[in-house]
């Protein structure tokens, strides 16, 4: 794989019993770019995503993160180690800690750094002096992302009481607080109105320009075509196209997959 790739997915297959949800899919996500995965419903997008973020262990194939000069085999890591390797994700159905405040949600995402600074909790109990500084840093980082997502004035509200669009943004802010090298977004524009979608596109671009690579699943074509540097198209679990947005728009197979090619579903 090229030097420029942050993530390489090689011949990943995921079977559930007799059903092959993802069939030998390979692609690379470029460093510092936005890569989108699109495809009709049931094409295997979310399954592939779950493999990349450690929810599923792929039946076959390899998923490698190239970060800080190291190659990490994501398909072999336990959940919390994937985050530590530098991958963060958001969910199609929002999974915030509803009962905690927006700020606390962002602090949980910085748990590792805080725990390391406090001697894994023991220091915090003993009130070591390094802890307040680490906590201040964590709060500063959280404030930065609250500001980026226009949530600063809601910092102390329970996450569950925020409006839908705000919860979506908070989930992105929380993922960014883990300081990921690769941010994976599962339908970030779902349920947003056009104005919110536009703000989302701007936010995602600024995250990319800040040096984080993005991988997203999205149905909203205006968002996908507007921000993606590269688009991977899946259909029935297999990759049918992998190119720049302008090329995808004109690809006959993609159009056929979306519009149906006379084959009865």
């Amino acid at each position: 794989m090229s030097q420029a790739a942050i993530l390489s997915v090689e011949a990943v297959t995921m079977r559930f019993g007799g059903l092959t949800a993802v069939n030998a899919v390979s692609f690379a996500a470029e460093r510092g770019a936005i890569t989108a995965i699109i495809g009709p419903n049931g094409a295997g997008k979310t399954t592939l995503f779950n493999c990349i973020t450690g929810f599923y262990r792929p039946s076959e194939g390899a998923i490698t993160l190239h970060h800080e000069g190291r190659d990490t085999a994501l398909h072999r890591l336990a959940g919390h180690k994937i985050a530590r390797a530098g991958v963060a994700r958001t969910f199609q159905n929002i999974r915030l800690f509803q009962g905690m405040t927006a700020l606390e949600n962002l602090l949980v995402a910085q748990h590792n750094r805080l725990m390391a600074a406090t001697g894994f909790g023991i220091g915090a109990v003993l009130g070591l002096s390094r802890y307040p500084a680490a906590e201040r840093d964590a709060i500063d980082r959280a404030r930065h992302w609250l500001e980026m997502t226009a949530l600063l004035d809601r910092a102390d509200d329970p996450a569950g009481s925020l409006p839908y669009g705000a919860q979506r943004r908070l989930e992105i802010a929380r993922a960014m607080c883990t300081e990921p090298a690769l941010l994976c977004l599962d339908e970030p524009a779902a349920g947003l109105n056009p104005r919110e979608s536009e703000a989302l596109s701007a936010l995602l671009r600024s995250i990319r320009d800040g040096g984080c690579s993005l991988l997203l699943i999205e149905h909203d074509m205006s968002v996908v075509m507007g921000i993606s540097d590269r688009i991977v198209v899946l259909d029935h679990g297999a990759k049918i196209a992998d190119a720049a947005p302008a090329v995808i728009r004109a690809d006959a197979r993609v159009i056929a997959a979306y519009l149906g090619e006379g084959d009865e579903e």
């Binding site: 336990a78 919390h80 530590r84 963060a88 800690f97």
Partner: peptide
């Protein structure tokens, strides 16, 4: 915070490291 996060959604807490 980690304990409360695990209480609400253990899988998600793991995904955040």
């Amino acid at each position: 915070r980690a304990m409360r996060a695990c209480e609400q959604d253990r899988k998600m807490a793991a995904l955040l490291g």
